[in-house]
Structure formats: structure tokens, C-alpha cells
Nucleic acid binder design. Structure first.
Length: 662
DNA sequence: GAGCACTGC
């Protein structure tokens, strides 16, 4: 029996030789041999991510202590691709093939191909500025133009000048290759520096259909079209792209009402929601095949465009909108608004219908409207708060941010705003140079600049242990509580249990400490308290990592103080005060004062803001406060993670910043 | 009085 099993080749290994990329093996290897930069254009299914690293390994590009590095924008991708390639190379993950993501390093001395997130590779550059461990670096999914991908490409271009032996491969699904090629060219001499190779994909054809006239309400239209498809088209699941949770819930409601009219013996319709705010378990429903005589219809945000792939989709309905975040350097506020998708996005969405068989894509807009869409989405680097990026680049020795070679330059106002903030935090000096040790340490911490400043100020306030926990908890970005299981009433009650008068930060600290004593090994305790167990475990990892950074800086963390200080009431109150002051030392630019009507006015600009409904301050009284995050949605400005402070603290810990107003 | 697209260190 055993022998017989061995004589079979598992199907998984076989298709690689059938993949389109196999025919390009020689030309790819030749190009890598001859040119410092190779740009590979290939659709999903071309095999570039899994096969190209293996070609390079077989051709001898790894060894002598050098590794082939392949970056991904997302953690899951790094893990799943590494697992797949390890299977194909018949080794365990962590041996010849490994991966490295935050909190998880599955590599060893044997590793020849290493998959990692692009953000992590940038971190490695802090320790090893020429990335000397790598013989080849392949930047995958470059067309997504994520913040770290763009920064990495700029850094690689700089490294290339000092390391002629390094080979850079940029892999992209769209035809922005020319832009990439001229980016890497030396003074316009593209031909000697860069080679472009296109690999055909293996997707099935997708028919595109447009509306004759624009739809008045695309949510209603989406439901109606889904129904028409269900009645008239052959088997195959439906994927509907909408812009957010609210639209998805409305659509599912509408569909369920109409589905009641379907004949009991006819094929049924099963609507399933998909958005990032759902827990992992809830997201898993979209992967389950529909029951017999039932068609599955997934209502999804942009998450299904690139991050999540669902099998069995034959029909895509594209409403044509996406919610994009954009940072306003004048006000310092992030806005989140629904905007029309780009052509590249619409194409990617349509492609989701042709993964297993030919499909159809119904666009809920006219062909004329499509032709007016922008070619591609504005890269993140042109619409983000750049303070973290500027800090990181400076730590990499890149001082002149304006002259740094970005593939697309950020607007100068974004750079100026970032420098102003870093200056006010003391991270850079009058000459925009990183200060020592404060600025260099802030850059090393995996925290936003304001929180990095808070953490590094904490020893002076005697609350380092507490701030470590608070920093870890705010890093979770709101995923601490879950609130979408229908239990909208139960959640506030269980949050009330942990509430601390001073505000959200101390409440988060309280949750963290309760988790350590009661919930760490007890996911039921978390569920009962509406806490996300996975997120809480993540907070523990983040805290451990931050603590290790501090120890490397020579700052010791005395964990025993934490419980002693909290024992008496006066002790607790004094500690809370110190934590409030410490938070003010980093978040003074995020200060506001509550108005008699319960809204807030920013101290610096007089903006009217509202406490987010998830904040303790949503229904409590306060005077001066600081907050972690500010976001504008549908013309209302919300602040989140709010803590009460005293006005005098602002003047004490940010005299420069507030001297005009005082 | 009432709500967050998606990633990453």
C-alpha cells in the first residue's frame, strides 16, 4: 500500500509545468542574468509568484548565504504562497522555503527562498541597509501600490547603485510597466537597466455588460440584477461589490424580502455578507459551498477584489464604488468617502468571475461612465499621513524626502505637514535631522509617531508598564470589541464593566489587565465580555515586541510597580493622572474641549467634532481631552479613543505648540 | 445623539 501511494504524484505538484510561465523560463532567467531590473507582467493564475522563485533557486541564485526574497503586501499571502512553494519543492515550511511576517519567523539557516511582507523587509533595511542577505528581491503585487511597496521600490533603487550584484524583480498584474521601467532607468537609459516580460494568465473569458441608462440607486439595482441573474442564468454563484457595511446590510435585507417570493421548489438564494469588520469565523461562511438547490450570493466590500478569493463565482455585479481613505494635510483629518472605482479596479473585479469557468460581469453604470473613470487608483502615498514614512526614511539615512526617488511623488504639502508634526514631537531638529536618541528610537518602534513619543516619555512619568499595554491596545485599531453579532444592546453593557472615568485609554488598559488574569487561556471569557480573543492575543504579542525594543534601548520595564501602585485608591488616581500627562506629551496636537452641547472643538483649529459612538465620551461629560484618531465620514467628524486631561498639561508638555494660543 | 474601505511593522 505504502509503495503504491508513493508511486502516485499528487495532483498539486503537476500543474506547475502546465502553467503559462513554464514556457518563459529561459527568457526570464536570461533577463535576470543580464539586467539589474526585471519587470514581470502577469495576471493572477500565471504562476509568477510560485514558479519564478523556484526557477531562480534552481538556476543557483541562492546559496553562499544569500537568499531569494519575495515580498507580499499582505501577511496571509506570504504564508500561503510559502506553504504552496514548500509543497512543490517537497520540503517543510521553514527549511529551504520559509516565510517571515511580524510575530512569526519561519525561516532557518537552510532557507533559500523567503517570502515576507514588504513592510517587514523595510524593517530589515534598518538593521541591514543594503539588504545584503538577498541576492534577488522580487516585489510582488506592485500594481497595488501600497504605502510600503512604494517606499520599498524607492529604497531598492537607491540600494541598486551600491549593489550591482543585486537583482530586482518587480511583478505587477497591470500594464503600468513602462512607468516602473523608466523609474529604474539610469538617466533615461532604460534598455541597459531594465527588461519587461509579459506572461499570459490562465483566466477564463468574462463577458462585460453595462447599463443602458445610469441607475438611480445602485444598491436596489444590484439586488434587482442579482435576481434577474438568478432567474435567467445557469448555475454559478454571484459576487456583488458594494462600498461598505451599511450598503451590504441594506442589500441583504432587500434581497431577503424579495427571496420570500421565490417558489418553494425553485432554486433558493443564500445571501452572505463579507467585509473586514466581521470576525474571521463570520468571514468563513463565504467559502462554504451553498446547500443543495441553492445559489450563493456574496455581498462584499473591496476585500474580495484582491485580498479574498472565493471559488465558484460565475457572475460579478459591480456597483462601481469604493470607499477610499484620504488625508487632508490642511486639517490633519482622514476622510473616508465612497468614490468611483478606477478602470484597473473594475477590471480586477470583473476577473473574479472567470477563475474557474467563463463568467459574466454586470457593471451598474454605463459604458460612457466607464470610459470616464480614472485609469488607476491614486497611490496611497499621495493620500496618506506621511509622518510614519518620513520618520522611517530618515532612519534609513534618507534625509531629503522631497528629492527622494518615489515612483510617484507625494504632494509637498503632505511632506511638510509630516515634518511639522515630527518637529513638534521632537523627533527631528531645526534642520529636519533625526534627533538622538529620541528620533532614532521613535523610528525603530513599530508605532505611530505620537504613540511612539508617548511610550518613550513614559519612564519620566513612572507609567511605562501601563503605557506599554495602552500602546498595544490602541494598535488593534478598534478590533478589541466585536459588535456585529446582532447583540447591539449587550455590548455596551459589557463595555460598561471595564469603563474607567478618565476615558478610553484607561478603559483599554483595564481590559488588557483583566484579559491577562482571566481571559488569556479562556476564549469563552472573551466571548462573554464581547472581546475579540484573537485581537487580545495579538495585543499581548505587540506588547512583548514593544517591550523588547525598549530593553534594546536600555530602558527597563518594571512590571511589579503596576500592581503595587494600583492597590490604594489614591495610588490609582495618581497613576491615572500620570498616564494622562504622559498621553498629553504625545497627543497634544490632538486636543479638544467639550462644548455645552456635547460636541468637541479642537484646541488648535476650532473644528467641531463628535465623540465616536464606540467611545466612552460619547455620553459622558468632559472638559479638555486628547484623542487618538480623527476621521470624517459623511460630513461628520468623529474622534475615537478619548481621554480627559487638564488644560495646564497642554501648556506644560507642549509649550511650543500652544504658545500662540496661550 | 448614533457608526470604519483595506493593509502593515
Amino acid at each position: 500500500m505504502a509503495e503504491l501511494e508513493l508511486s502516485f504524484i499528487p495532483a498539486l505538484y503537476k500543474p506547475s509545468s502546465l502553467l503559462p510561465i513554464a514556457r518563459h523560463r529561459q527568457s526570464l532567467l536570461y533577463a535576470v542574468e543580464q539586467f539589474p531590473v526585471l519587470i514581470v507582467i502577469g495576471q493572477t493564475g500565471s504562476g509568477k509568484t510560485t514558479q519564478l522563485p523556484q526557477f531562480l533557486e534552481e538556476a543557483g541564485w541562492s546559496g553562499n548565504g544569500k537568499v531569494i526574497g519575495v515580498t507580499q503586501p499582505r501577511r496571509v499571502a506570504a504564508v500561503t504562497v510559502a506553504t504552496r512553494v514548500a509543497e512543490e519543492m517537497r520540503c517543510n515550511v521553514g527549511e529551504e522555503v520559509g516565510y517571515s511576517i511580524r510575530f512569526e519567523d519561519k525561516t532557518s539557516a537552510k532557507t533559500r527562498i523567503k517570502f515576507l511582507t514588504d513592510g517587514l523587509l523595510l524593517r530589515e533595511a534598518l538593521m541591514d541597509p543594503l539588504l545584503s542577505r538577498y541576492s534577488v528581491i522580487m516585489v510582488d503585487e506592485a500594481h497595488e501600490r501600497s504605502l510600503s511597496t512604494d517606499v520599498l521600490l524607492g529604497v531598492l533603487k537607491k540600494i541598486k547603485k551600491k549593489r550591482p550584484d543585486l537583482r530586482i524583480i518587480v511583478s505587477s498584474a497591470t500594464l503600468q510597466a513602462k512607468e516602473m521601467a523608466s523609474f529604474f532607468a539610469n538617466e533615461g537609459d532604460t534598455d541597459s537597466e531594465c527588461r519587461i516580460i509579459s506572461i499570459e494568465g490562465r483566466a477564463f473569458p468574462v463577458d462585460i455588460l453595462y447599463l443602458e441608462r445610469p441607475a438611480e440607486d445602485y444598491v436596489e439595482k444590484a439586488v434587482q440584477v442579482a435576481f434577474d441573474v438568478h432567474k435567467n442564468e445557469a448555475n454559478g454563484d454571484i459576487l456583488v461589490f458594494l462600498s461598505g457595511r451599511e450598503e451590504i446590510e441594506t442589500a441583504i435585507q432587500l434581497l431577503s424580502e424579495q427571496a420570500a417570493e421565490i417558489h418553494p421548489k425553485a432554486q433558493a438564494l443564500l445571501p452572505v455578507p463579507l467585509y473586514a469588520g466581521l470576525t474571521t469565523d463570520e468571514q468563513m461562511y463565504v467559502f462554504e459551498p451553498a446547500p443543495d438547490n441553492t445559489r450563493k450570493i456574496v455581498f462584499s466590500t473591496n476585500i474580495a477584489e484582491a485580498s479574498v478569493t472565493i471559488d465558484g463565482i460565475a457572475y460579478v455585479i459591480d456597483a462601481g464604488f469604493v470607499k477610499l481613505r484620504a488625508y487632508n494635510p490642511q486639517t490633519g483629518i482622514d476622510t473616508l468617502t465612497a468614490v468611483p472605482v478606477s478602470k484597473a479596479s473594475a477590471t480586477q473585479r470583473a476577473g473574479r468571475a472567470g477563475r474557474t469557468k467563463p463568467g459574466k460581469c454586470y457593471r451598474l453604470y454605463t459604458e460612457a461612465a466607464f470610459s470616464r473613470l480614472p485609469e488607476s487608483t491614486v497611490p496611497e502615498i499621495q493620500r496618506s499621513d506621511l509622518a510614519p514614512i518620513v520618520l522611517q526614511l530618515k532612519a534609513l539615512g534618507i534625509d531629503n524626502i522631497v528629492r527622494f526617488n518615489f515612483i510617484t511623488s507625494p504632494p509637498s504639502r503632505l511632506v511638510t505637514r509630516a515634518l511639522e508634526l515630527l518637529y513638534s514631537l521632537g523627533a527631528v531638529d531645526d534642520y529636519a535631522k533625526l534627533t538622538k536618541p529620541l528620533g532614532t528610537r521613535m523610528a525603530e518602534l513599530s508605532l505611530e509617531p505620537m504613540m511612539a513619543k508617548v511610550l518613550l516619555s513614559a519612564p519620566g512619568f513612572g507609567c511605562l508598564s501601563e503605557i506599554l499595554s495602552i500602546a498595544a491596545m490602541t494598535s488593534l485599531q478598534g478590533s478589541v470589541w466585536f459588535h456585529h453579532d446582532g447583540g447591539r444592546k449587550a455590548m455596551p453593557a459589557s463595555r460598561h464593566k471595564f469603563a474607567v472615568d478618565e476615558g478610553d485609554h484607561l478603559t483599554l488598559l483595564n481590559v488588557y489587565q483583566a484579559f491577562l488574569t482571566k481571559g488569556r487561556k479562556d476564549s469563552k471569557w472573551c466571548r462573554d465580555n464581547h472581546l475579540n480573543h484573537k485581537s487580545m492575543l495579538r495585543a499581548v504579542s505587540i506588547r512583548t515586541q514593544l517591550k523588547r525594543y525598549l530593553e534594546r534601548f536600555g530602558l527597563s520595564v518594571d512590571e511589579s510597580l503596576n500592581s503595587n501602585g494600583m492597590q490604594s485608591k489614591q495610588g490609582a488616581a495618581e497613576k491615572a493622572k500620570q498616564i494622562g500627562k504622559c498621553l498629553t506629551a504625545g497627543y497634544f496636537a490632538h486636543a479638544a474641549r467639550m462644548q455645552p452641547d456635547g460636541t468637541f472643538k479642537s484646541v488648535s483649529g476650532g473644528l467641531t467634532m463628535h465623540a465616536h459612538p464606540t467611545s466612552l465620551m460619547f455620553n459622558r461629560k468632559a472638559d479638555f481631552v486628547i484623542f487618538h484618531e480623527i476621521l470624517e465620514t459623511s460630513n461628520k467628524i468623529f474622534i475615537r479613543d478619548i481621554t480627559k486631561i487638564e488644560r495646564s498639561w497642554l501648556l506644560e508638555y507642549a509649550p511650543e505648540y500652544y504658545k500662540v494660543k496661550s
